[in-house]
Design a protein around this nucleic acid. Structure first.
Lengths: 335, 335
DNA sequence: ACGTGGCATTGCAACGTTGCAAACTGGGTA
DNA sequence: TACCCAGTTTGCAACGTTGCAATGCCACGT
């Protein structure tokens, strides 16, 4: 016996298909006795609505896509947790896709989570250029996360990365550091976020009367711990190593921390470290990470609220929404 | 103008609806010239298949659910990454749901990811009792992850938690530790996995001629860093603190590590630590964590392969599949 | 000229649901 | 008694796609 449908229930309860549908969707319009009889039939047959048919008929499926580079990076994992929770609040379920930062995959998935009939998409790009976010006829609405500027007609939700990076670096300057490195540029990707963070970093240096030394601006391949280790080792191999490092993600910072330990350097005494993202692991590392904390929950909620509005009215103009952040001072770069 | 459908394309290309469908699904049966004409029309109209209609017609939607307690716990995040990748390999997309370990939510979601028309579900339970995994008429097939034994008719994929815990503890015994604690029991949940790990831990103690001291078996509320901190502090407050701690997850171990640092204890000199899960953060902590490493990729692949088989043939008997694990010896508990 | 076989294309129906509007029911009112 | 209205229930059609089976077409061999 296959899965029961409305007709099976209707037959069993001795009512019309339409009435069963009413019991499921608008129970209050059905007479009490009828409703109870139908509900019993539903129970007995184990009826569950066919979502595909409902979606086809209604024109929406209450599913949204979440497209991130990698769901196992702590920042994205934490973000995803907030998105899933916020989505549930709105009656949505979340479909997760990974791009691995691959431009081609980002482009494909931008067109609607592999076409999987989602009502909308929350998209966290790494390498997408603004030009690529256009001409997407028939694709579901998208909200972009992060600092990819210049999309214009597309909604975007992000923290002010440049200001955040400036504050982080200023904190290091203020604590007396004079040779401050930056780790996390990704020149091989058109990663706008990294660019903004570097801009903020440089602003803070200038404001503190420090010169930019490009030898201290270390590019990385990816943003994992291992990349942080490599970058830190490179910095420590310099003739004049830094006395502070601003890492563009906490993962990089934790890698840098590890590299310092391996080399026998003390943090923060010999080198101060600041991260970015405020992932849980950074709150419990030894020493605990000073870091920029984006309000991830707010970010998720705002992204979904924006998406909901756009789904309701696709003619809305594109919006640029800013979410607050704070600098959390911990042991790796104390005041 | 709304979204284009097969009929719009057919009209524009001057062919039948069926031929357009053929171009989309089985291009090789269509003549080259026709195919090109249709493809041009598809491009021009920006046609994208309606997934709901396809799903309704085909009877499957190539979407599976992944139900985990929390997607932002590193272990589940890493697992999810593997699941998403493996799913893509099989042409599936993954819908993620979080239970927060809440029994009621676990029960609901077990019945098919909030009914969201998934073809199958990969379920990672925390507190579900075997009795609850029954009588699910019409619900999609499920593969259970972890050590929830006794489901019988349901497929299950897991590592041998008891053996793994035994090996981890034996490693501590072999390195000369004599007062070995265990952190991670969750007596308030019917968490079978924790039970198995304790059984393995006790086995190893017995084999090493050590007595079980229930004062050294520390329960925790959740499995986060903070719980590890609290548990470790409790252990260090004992009249006779342990010289080694086996934590049931790496997150707990990292919390314990942090607590040791705060108290000025050296790891591994004063206390050795072993974790479980082999999350990335544990590979870069100071000191790096000795831990049990489940083959997560294998776990994900096997779970999905099993699910695929069950979807194909729902009359298959329930299977219990075991995935390999290894003990990775690092600094927190050297040989 | 005609049948044959292979390739290409087509029409019909159905998947399960819900929007719409019509139809029925019973009791209260003019 | 005839009528009306609110409360219930119903039938029909359509959402967009694909399985099935039939039809059309053409080149080839006889």
């Amino acid at each position: 016996m296959s899965r029961a449908n409305l007709r099976d229930v209707a037959e069993r309860a001795g009512v019309s298909v339409r009435t069963v549908s009413n019991v499921v969707n608008t129970p209050d319009v059905v007479a009490t006795t009828t409703r109870e009889r139908v509900q019993r039939a539903i129970e007995e047959l184990g009826y569950r609505p066919n979502i595909a048919a409902r979606q086809l008929r209604r024109g929406r499926g209450d599913v949204i896509g979440l497209v991130v580079p990698e769901i196992d990076s702590p920042y994205f994992a934490e973000l995803a947790a907030h998105v899933v929770r916020a989505a549930e609040e709105l009656g949505w379920t979340v479909l997760v896709e990974q791009t691995d930062g691959d431009p081609a995959r980002e482009r494909d998935l931008l067109d609607g989570a592999r076409g999987h009939g989602v009502d909308g998409v929350v998209f966290s790009p790494w390498s997408l250029t603004p030009a690529e976010v256009s001409r997407r006829a028939g694709a579901p609405p998208v909200v972009m996360l992060g600092e990819q500027a210049g999309f214009g007609h597309v909604d975007r939700v992000a923290i002010d990365n440049q200001a955040a990076a400036r504050e982080a670096t200023t904190h290091l300057v203020a604590s007396g550091r004079r040779r401050i490195a930056a780790v996390g540029l990704q020149p091989h990707l058109s990663n706008e976020t990294a660019r903004h963070r570097r801009a903020g970093y440089r602003e803070a240096l200038a404001a503190g009367g420090l010169a930019v030394d490009t030898a201290l601006e270390v590019p990385v391949d990816r943003l994992h711990h291992a990349d942080g280790v490599r970058a830190m080792e490179a910095l420590l191999d310099l003739a004049e190593p830094p006395d502070a490092v601003f890492c563009f993600t906490d993962q990089l910072a934790l890698g840098a921390l590890r590299a310092c330990a391996t080399r026998g350097l003390r943090v923060p005494e010999d080198v101060a470290l600041v991260g970015f993202d405020d992932i849980e692991a950074g709150r419990y590392s030894v020493p605990a990470l000073t870091t920029v904390a984006p309000d991830k929950q707010r970010l998720a909620e705002l992204a979904l609220a924006t998406l909901a509005e756009r789904i309701a009215d696709r003619s809305l103009p594109g919006r640029d929404l800013v979410v607050p952040h704070t600098l959390v001072v911990r042991e790796s770069a104390p005041a």
